[in-house]
Design a binder for these strands. Structure first.
Lengths: 299, 299
DNA sequence: GCGAAGGCATAGCCTTGGTCTATAACTTTG
DNA sequence: CAAAGTTATAGACCAAGGCTATGCCTTCGC
């Protein structure tokens, strides 16, 4: 079946009539009639029964429509993408970024880069650490930003700056010292853990294991949002990276540095043989600048 | 972009060369070259850079390929569907069925119907109770089989037979009488509940509420499979319909009827103005027969 | 360093998918 | 019974997409 035949079947099925499908498609009625008939000839079975000058969908049409509807929607989305590409003036970068960096760090970076070059456009997808390399290698995105970097010789990684893990506690939580907190504070404390939290989780559990610190994990949350919400409700304390902490809208919680800071590298990874190396390079420079700025301004 | 252009772009991108794409598509090299060039003209931007007689994908091509790949796969699936429809001799019925009925009751029905008419073909999707009516109205399936029936005047419902809820307990569970069990047995018992279990869940909780029976729900499972597995491991007891109980591969559990049986109607629902009423009708008759047979043979 | 091999592009030709206008036939409705 | 709706057919036309033949450029092996 040709694309035009699919489009016409889609509209005729939905409208229930050739004439109104023709109006919707801005073509003549005989044109639609002919294409539909031709499609049926090629398929070898009828899509509609003609009775008393009207159309009635056959069971085969019902069955095909289920698949066609989906295809049609994707083709429409694809067409929009081609429009966007055509209209573009400046460069276009597709970011893959950790959920925890997607609310604060990346928007800040994009805003800065747009100031420098208002013609540029961006695309943002959230990815987990484990998906980033594959996404880059399949050229589904251009730059991935996460904590740490898995080695792959086709990819190049650049450290943008550091992220610090902070203790978050309910407002007025007792026993927390004024200044910095020792990691040992977590021992036996009511703790809200994060499942599948990638390098940040690895760093934290390793540091705790080294000192035989065992918190009392009362809840294991699957998203940072839920974890922070639980903290602000006084369920327990938690440890998250500074960007997650900064992006939180909860105001019933306090943030604390550790005496021995837990530092993670914030890295940008990209494909070595990109088709637009200068663009990537300038983006990485801008990112690095913004990350350093944000790290120093935050407390 | 035309469908042919999409196909050709897909193969050229994957193969990395026009010639090998042409070989794969069983057409001549100039043909592919021409269509690709034409597509680029229409799009208004290049998909590949030509350098030293070779092709290199542009960033735009990378971006489009992400969407194209998906579309291409669906088109291929669609083509297979049209092939299937063309080859069909007998009727074709698309069933929507509860997960609990999909492993035992429906396969049995289909086997029986295929014996009666070997030319018939079938399609089975599992649906939850709440999705069935919509699926029928959108003509995504022809017959839905579930417990009970929500009224909609465009649909017609037929009671095929009954399903009984049974108590399932770990093998050698103490305190269970030889014959039938009173529902009161559940009171304070370690119980494995099922989330979102539809009419069966409603019937059970209503019956328990009437007699103020409150089990101790130690686990809430999301699938019958997990619930039964937990029962067989001795975590607790549970209540499931007879078909789920029968389809279970667990053999470390026992099944028990209740003194006052909990009975649910097994109903088949179909669209009133189907294009193939005789086919639907004969299916419903066969279904009804099989359900009655299975109900009586089971204990 | 030169010829062979393989890659892409162009030219010229042909088939067919898809468009139009004009017209006919049939249904339903006022 | 006419008016307004529907679908189907006829004939003309254009462009999408296929083919063969050919030429040019790069790379590789002798």
């Amino acid at each position: 079946m040709r694309l035009r035949q699919i489009e016409i079947f889609y509209h005729v099925y939905r409208e229930g009539s050739i004439s109104s499908a023709a109006r919707e498609l801005h073509v003549s009625q005989p044109s639609v009639s002919k294409v539909l008939r031709y499609a049926e000839d090629q398929l070898g079975f009828a899509l509609f029964r003609r009775e008393k000058g009207r159309l009635f969908a056959t069971p085969a049409a019902d069955e095909l429509f289920v698949e066609i509807e989906d295809i049609y929607n994707r083709i429409s989305a694809f067409d929009r993408t081609t429009q966007n590409i055509r209209k573009r003036k400046g460069g276009h970068i597709r970011f893959g970024v950790l959920p925890s960096l997607s609310l604060d760090l990346l928007p800040e970076c994009i805003a800065t880069m747009r100031l420098a070059d208002p013609e540029m456009s961006f695309e943002v997808t959230t990815l987990h650490s484990s998906e980033m390399n594959l996404s880059l290698l399949e050229k589904r995105c251009d730059i991935c930003i996460g904590f740490g970097n898995e080695a792959d010789e086709r990819l190049s990684s650049q450290r943008l700056g550091d992220a610090e893990l902070l203790l978050v506690a309910p407002f007025g939580c007792e026993g927390i010292p004024k200044g910095e907190v020792d990691l040992g504070f977590l021992h036996q404390a009511d703790f809200i853990g994060l499942q599948d939290s990638g390098p940040a989780g690895v760093l934290l559990s390793k540091s705790m294991a080294d000192r035989e610190i065992v918190p009392h994990e009362v809840v294991t949350a699957h998203t940072y949002h839920i974890a922070l919400s639980l903290v602000s409700k006084g369920v327990g304390i938690s440890v998250v990276d500074q960007y997650t902490a900064a992006s939180s809208s909860e105001n019933d919680l306090t943030k604390h540095h550790f005496v021995d800071p837990l530092i993670l590298p914030v890295c940008a990874v990209s494909h070595r043989d990109s088709q637009q190396p200068e663009l990537i390079e300038s983006c990485l420079a801008a990112l690095s600048k913004v990350v350093k700025l944000m790290s120093s301004s935050q407390n």
